[in-house]
């Protein structure tokens, strides 16, 4: 949210976000609006609540197009049909006349993706795009995102809680805990040699492999974001805790090329 400047007025955002070398947090409102939607767009977890229930799919996509391009109604409509074809909606011409509630969850998410792609963005932020979908449909949507990435040279920031999705669809991964990045690495490095205890515990707690053996749960609960501990935010649940962890906040540091972590133990080992 903060990346797109969609946070409420009262939120405090610090630091820098560089997009193609430009710090976009300091951009004035109108330039940001142009950037958002045009070069960066976003899809959300729940496609139903992000679509307007009283407009047809065609109207919504054309509206997005006409907001960004100088386009006639007819051209926008034709382009909308191409977009639905692009996201592999069967019978695209007919679907343009449909209202959101007439579509299944998977189709709605495809429509959302079509709208996000309307302006040929360079970066797509996908916030839990498949969490609300069924397993068989989830695979279809993720497959579509990968195809689009390859066809249009799109970059995707995929936000998810599902490590399986990461393992199969991401190139690089950054693990967040309580507002901080704990580890950032290529997917291969991350699963083969996780260096942060939180990342390790996450990988171990995935059910799946062999049945009936006990799952390794992470003890304790996530601290409240309004009442964070002073030191490392994972300290209270960490199996490799030591006194220094509740004193200082470890910064994210590169421990091998392309692999960064924020844990004192891992710094020692590196």
């Amino acid at each position: 949210m903060a990346l797109l400047g969609l946070q409420p007025e009262s939120a405090q955002v610090e630091g820098e976000v560089r997009f193609s070398g430009q710090n976009i947090l300091t951009l004035p409102g109108d330039q940001m609006t142009a950037l958002r939607g045009r070069r960066i767009s976003m899809i959300f977890q729940d496609p139903m609540s992000s679509l307007n229930p009283v407009l047809t799919i065609g109207q919504q996509i054309s509206e997005t197009l006409r907001a960004h391009f100088d386009m006639s109604r007819r051209d926008a409509w034709t382009r909308s049909k191409h977009l639905l074809d692009l996201v592999r909606v069967p019978g695209a011409a007919g679907r343009l006349q449909a209202y959101p509630h007439e579509l299944s969850g998977g189709l709605r998410q495809r429509v959302m993706i079509a709208m996000a792609l309307a302006c040929e963005p360079e970066l797509l932020l996908a916030d839990e795009p498949t969490t609300a979908l069924d397993v068989t449909v989830q695979a279809q949507i993720l497959d579509l995102l990968l195809d689009l990435r390859d066809e249009t040279n799109l970059s995707i920031l995929l936000i998810t809680h599902d490590l399986g999705v990461i393992a199969n669809f991401a190139d690089r991964v950054a693990v967040m805990y309580c507002g901080r990045v704990m580890e950032a690495a290529s997917v291969g490095d991350f699963f083969d040699a996780p260096s942060h205890p939180y990342a390790e515990a996450l990988i171990r707690s995935i059910p799946g492999g062999s049945s009936q053996e006990r799952l390794e749960a992470i003890p304790g609960t996530v601290p409240k974001l309004t009442d964070l501990p002073r030191g490392c935010r994972f300290a209270t649940r960490c199996l490799r805790y030591r006194a220094a962890c509740s004193e200082d906040l470890p910064e994210l540091r590169e421990i091998s090329p392309g692999h960064s972590t924020a844990c004192f133990r891992a710094f020692d080992n590196a």
Binding site: S104, G105, G106, L107, D134, V135, T136, V137, Q138, A139, Q140, L142, D143, L146, D162, L163, G164, V165, A167, N168, F169, V187, G188, F191, I206, G208, G209
Partner: peptide, 25 residues
């Protein structure tokens, strides 16, 4: 079979994952 093969492998396999069936319920 479709459900089982829709389970994402918990670790990277190096092979592109393909959806087992098309369409919705």
């Amino acid at each position: 079979r479709a459900l089982v093969s829709a389970i994402l492998p918990p670790r990277p396999t190096g092979v592109r994952f393909r959806p087992p069936v098309s369409g919705d319920l």
